[in-house]
Nucleic acid binder design. Structure first.
Length: 277
DNA sequence: GCCCAGGGATGCG
DNA sequence: CGCATCCATGGG
């Protein structure tokens, strides 16, 4: 993989460690549109357009620096994949999702998005987030920005219900009204344990959602979010019928260590996409 | 009508 | 601590 930067584009040549569809469809982001070889991705008030050719991927955006970091382009995924392919459970999943990269998304946007994600499905999550953007976010012309904390503070419980949040509406309202800009900024400076403990104090955030926020919003990789799919994967691989997600989380985090977050994404994409149960 | 979705809050022992 | 139960909503 070789990266070139022009005035208005990032060009990724020989992208054996980057596949746009895989990266967008592995459940780590909910604001994107894929149309054949073209894709548009949104984060905060920014967007990027990605076009996949046979030998390269071209990324254009009004903020190339942001999306360079967003797509984790400075990290070497080939060594990560080599290490994870040694694991008998993971080999097929890594080969299947060879082009997955873990996105470095906006912490606050990830927090709101994953509160919505609890006991929900991806189609509904995307629709709810889209509703919040179009009703409370800034109009950017071609699209709507993700609403800022200040903008979301204007939303009522009823607004969240109209967005389709269901019983998460009250949780979201409480968390948004309690959260300050400083809380978000401070999180970046804290240790993983401090971050985790703070996140658990927020309504609508439990262990799984907190781990997703650490992984996708704070770049912490030694966490292993366990959802229903990972629960199924675990039972299939170990030939058990375990439902204690705390126990599954402990075991998988111990097994994959600092590569836990990557392993989790390969698992999730492979098993969910193949609808293996 | 039942089951499921990137689970969490609450109460009870 | 572990455990059971309830929770809105839409699609299969």
């Amino acid at each position: 993989m070789r990266i070139e930067r022009t005035r208005d584009k990032i060009i990724v040549f020989e992208p054996e460690d980057f596949n746009v569809v895989q990266t967008l469809c592995c459940g780590q982001i909910f604001r994107y549109v894929i149309d054949g070889d073209e894709a548009v991705v949104y984060s905060r008030d920014k967007c990027a357009r990605l076009v996949t050719y046979t030998d390269r991927i071209e990324i254009s955006s009004n903020d190339l620096d942001y999306f360079h970091n967003f797509f984790d382009l400075d990290r070497d995924y080939s060594s990560i994949k080599t290490a994870l392919r040694e694991d008998e459970f993971l080999k097929k999943a890594v080969d299947f999702g060879y082009g997955i990269r873990i996105i470095n998304n906006d912490l606050y946007e990830i927090l709101v998005s994953f509160i919505i994600s609890a006991n929900n499905n991806i189609g509904r999550i995307k629709r709810s987030i889209e509703y919040l953007c179009s009703h409370f976010g800034r109009n950017m012309g071609e699209y709507y920005a993700f609403p800022t904390l200040e903008e979301l503070e204007k939303a009522s419980i009823e607004d969240y219900r109209l967005a389709g949040l269901g019983y998460r509406a009250e949780q979201m309202y409480e968390t948004i009204s309690r959260l300050s800009k400083e809380d978000i900024d401070n999180l970046h400076q804290q240790s993983t344990k401090e971050q985790f403990d703070f996140l658990l104090t927020l309504k609508g955030v439990g262990e799984k959602v907190a781990n997703c926020i650490l992984l996708f919003g704070l770049g912490v990789k030694n966490v292993f979010p366990v959802d229903t799919w990972i629960n199924k994967v675990y039972n299939r691989l170990t030939n058990t019928n375990e439902s204690d997600r705390k126990k599954i989380t402990r075991e998988l985090t111990a097994r994959y260590g600092d590569l836990s977050g990557y392993a989790q994404q390969y698992f999730f994409y492979y098993f969910r996409d193949n609808k293996l149960s």
